[in-house]
């Protein structure tokens, strides 16, 4: 895109600057639209699994429900509790929302269609997702109220715990791909399984890692069955209890953008990203970003399927799963993966 703006007669730096701004808008605006629609999809899926109809009043098939909800919260009054720490109280939703958008900069939507093609791409994703905890912690503390505070403590412990095993899982992927660049990771999955299947999941060492990654992703985004930060039967609404209006909406949008990011990461790291599922020439007629969106949408369906069917974990069970099962298992698989690659790929 930089080249296009340069052809309009700008110098390189301005062309790069404007191209980057355009790229950000090209990702962020459709992402917001996608989040609005995905909330609708989420509610429809839960409704279908509970034999209900779900949103069906606003617009055809209730398609405009999310926009109506958005308009509603936009017109509400922003209530700031008098005992709250005002600056941080307003900063927390902004942090959650911004961080949720930032990680999308390195996700490849199609061959070469990535805003920042950096060679520490996966580390960048890990770094940004580790920032997500600040929104929850600051919101819980600044609200100056007991339920949000409990939720903040839970959120901090939970997200740090699962980040550790996510880190090890990502190391396995990096070892197989031989690089950190997300486009490179997608490329290295081309014909990975017997020369036909595109995707790292087609491997006895990486398939268990994918299962762990899917579950850890749910815990990392505090999605059901790990939504202990907003367990309504214990903590009212957790860290969001004192929030209203747009501040609340920012939490919601950020949360769903994070869930979509986890789905996109599942797609990119284990299921071949924008490559078609099989290495077969006719499948390449469909453009890459369609495959990417289809796969991401499938994982989102899995996420809402799980949310609709699985009961919430107890807090000690969550910690046990993270530290006593996922962490040793992912560590073991790092050793196994590097040993296997040492024998087969770099041997002799």
């Amino acid at each position: 895109m930089t080249a296009f703006f340069e052809s309009l007669g700008m110098n390189y730096e301005w062309a790069w600057f404007i191209a980057t701004i355009c790229g950000i808008l090209l990702i962020a605006l459709p992402l917001m639209l996608a989040v609005a629609m995905i909330i609708y999809v989420d509610r429809k899926v839960w409704a279908a699994m509970a034999l209900r109809r779900g949103p069906n009043v606003v617009g055809p098939f209730g398609l405009l429900q999310s926009f109506a909800d958005g308009l509603k919260v936009f017109l509400q009054e922003t209530i700031i509790p008098s005992a709250a720490n005002k600056g941080l109280f307003l900063l927390a939703p902004i942090i959650t929302f911004t961080v949720a958008l930032m990680a999308w900069a390195v996700i490849p939507f199609s061959s070469g269609a990535v805003l920042a093609d950096i060679n520490v791409g996966l580390l960048y994703v890990l770094a940004i997702s580790s920032l997500g905890v600040y929104g929850v912690v600051i919101a819980g503390w600044a609200s100056n109220s007991k339920y949000p505070f409990f939720s903040a403590l839970r959120g901090a412990a939970q997200m740090i715990s699962y980040e550790v095993s996510i880190g090890f899982i990502l190391i396995c992927v990096i070892l197989y791909a031989g690089g950190n660049n997300l486009n490179g990771i997608v490329e290295s999955q081309r014909g990975f399984g017997l020369g036909i299947v595109n995707g790292f999941f087609f491997n006895l060492l990486l398939f268990p890692m994918w299962v762990l990654f899917l579950i850890s992703g749910m815990a990392e985004t505090a999605r059901a069955p790990f939504d202990l930060t907003e367990a309504e039967s214990e903590l009212v609404a957790g860290y969001q209890t004192e929030y209203s209006s747009m501040a609340f909406a920012l939490f919601w949008l950020g949360e769903y953008a994070n869930v979509l990011l986890m789905c996109a990461l599942n797609t990119t790291l284990f299921f071949g990203g924008w490559l078609p599922p099989l290495e077969w020439a006719p499948l390449y007629i469909v453009p890459g970003f369609i495959w990417f969106l289809l796969k991401t949408f499938f994982f989102f369906f899995v996420f809402s399927w799980v949310k609709a069917t699985v009961p919430r974990f107890r807090y000690d069970q969550l910690m046990r799963l993270g530290w006593k099962i996922f962490l040793p298992m992912s560590l073991l698989f790092v050793v196994l993966t590097s040993g296997w690659l040492m024998i087969t790929r770099y041997g002799a």
Partner: peptide, 10 residues
């Protein structure tokens, strides 16, 4: 990235 992951994130 390590600075962000280790110091900021943990």
């Amino acid at each position: 990235m390590l600075l962000v992951i280790v110091y900021v994130g943990a």
